[in-house]
Amino acid sequence: MSTRKTSEPFWWGLFSVGGVVAAFLVPVHLFIHGLAVPLGWIAFPHARMLALVGQPLVKVYLFVLIALPLYHWAHRFRFVLEDLGLHALRAPIAVGCYGSAVAGTVGTLWVLLRL
């Protein structure tokens, strides 16, 4: 099938689901962990947080929360650079952007598995 000729659908698919995560889940955590907990609006002791993170399902959730938006960033940033006129560097830009997201994914896995 000729749609297989290009890997774009794969990266766009990750961009797309990453965008959903970034739009719907990330703001919730920004609010809870960035505002509500530090400002004392809700009590969420560190020990409890750490215990939660030890749960396998929570790890899966955190992996989705952290890794997928990286691909959203990678795809968007790649096209921002291309739109800025760096067309001659298309291939290294793509490798750099998606490579960073893959590195971030591996790093996320490493941290989560060690917790």
Partner: peptide, 13 residues
Amino acid sequence: SKVAGAKDWFLSI
């Protein structure tokens, strides 16, 4: 069309 294209691509895999 991107959604359709991505769906076709993943199904083809």
